Amino acid sequence: MTSTERLPAEIRRPEPGSVALVTGGNSGIGLETARQLLAIGVDVWIGARDLEKGRRAAAELGSDARVVQLDVTDPASVADAVRRIAELDILVNNAGVNPGVDDITGTTLEQMRIAYETNVFGLISVTQGFLPHLQRSRHPRIVNVSSGTGSLTWNSSANPQFDWEQTKGGGLAYRSSKTAVNAVTLLAAQALGERIKVNALAPGLRRTNLVAGMSAGGDPAEAARGVLRLALLADDGPTGALWSWDGTRAPW
C-alpha cells in the first residue's frame, strides 16, 4: 500500500449483535468512540479503571452502554473482564497515559515504566486476553489508538501536523511507547493473518485529559470517527497499518 492510500469515507453498518470493548472508554476519544458505536447499533462495553467514572460515562451516553472495571496494568482486572464479557467482535485499545514531556535529559525511568505499563504492556495484556473471543467472531477487529508522535518517519522529517521544532526530542516516554504500539500492531497483524484486522490510529492532537494544559486540540469526536472506520472495516480491508484520523495511511 502507498502512503496516499485512503480508507473508505463511509462507515460500514455492523452486523446485528456486534459487541465492542473500548478501554479507557470513560473520557476523551474513548468516550466519543463508545458514543458513535452505540449510535450505529453496536453493543458497547466501556472499560474503565475507575468503575464510578465508567458508570458516570454510561449515564452521560444515555443508552445501553455497559461498564466493566478494567485496569489494563492489572492482570487480575483483565482476567475478570475477559470472564465477564462473553463475546467480542471489536477491541479498541484506547487506554493510555502521558507521564511527561521531558526529553532524554530529564525523563526518569519511572516515567518510562508508567508509559510502557499502560500504553504497551497493558495493550498486549488486553489483546491476548480477548483473543479467544475475537477468534470466534465473524468479523474480528482490533484498533490500537496510537499517535502520530510515535511515527519515526514524522519524527525525523518535517510534517505539517506537528511543530517539530518545538518538540524535537521531547516526550520521550510517551512518544517512544507509541512507536512500540505501532510495532506491536504490525507484528500482531502479521501473526494473526487477514481475518483479524489489526490497525493503529493516529488521532491527532485532541482535547483530552492526556494533553491537559496544552492550548491546542481538536474535537475527540473527529478522531473517534477514524476509530470507527477501522473498527468496521470490510473483510477485504487492510490490516497491519498506521492510519491518520482523516483516513489516509500514515508512515511508520
Score class of each variant (00 low, 15 high):
L187N: 10
L205F: 14
D80T: 15
T108W: 09
W164D: 13
S177P: 05
Y116L: 02
T239R: 00
A216F: 14
A115P: 00
A221N: 01
D236S: 09
D102K: 07
L88A: 03
N199S: 09
N119E: 02
L233D: 06
I85E: 06
R83G: 14
D102S: 09
A234Y: 13
D163F: 05
L192T: 04
A48E: 03
H139V: 11
R136W: 12
T105C: 10
V22L: 04
E110G: 13
W45V: 01
L192F: 14
P99H: 04
D236H: 11
S157Y: 11
G171V: 05
Q69R: 15
Y116I: 05
I104P: 02
G226I: 06
E194L: 05
V72C: 05
Q190F: 08
Q69G: 14
N144R: 01
A212Q: 14
G25V: 08
V67Q: 05
V22Q: 10
M112N: 02
R83S: 13
G148R: 10
S177V: 00
L21S: 07
A216N: 14
W154K: 14
D219Y: 12
V44K: 05
T127N: 03
R56C: 10
R84C: 09
D71G: 00
G54P: 03
A221Q: 05
V42R: 00
G47V: 08
L88P: 01
E87T: 11
E110C: 12
G218N: 01
V143R: 15
G217S: 07
A34R: 10
I114S: 08
G24P: 00
E194K: 08
S147V: 02
I46Y: 11
W164Q: 11
L228S: 04
A48D: 02
G106M: 12
P132R: 00
F130E: 01
R84L: 15
A231T: 02
A241P: 02
A212G: 06
A202P: 07
R66M: 14
P14E: 13
G41M: 09
A65T: 04
T153R: 12
S157F: 14
A234I: 05
V78E: 00
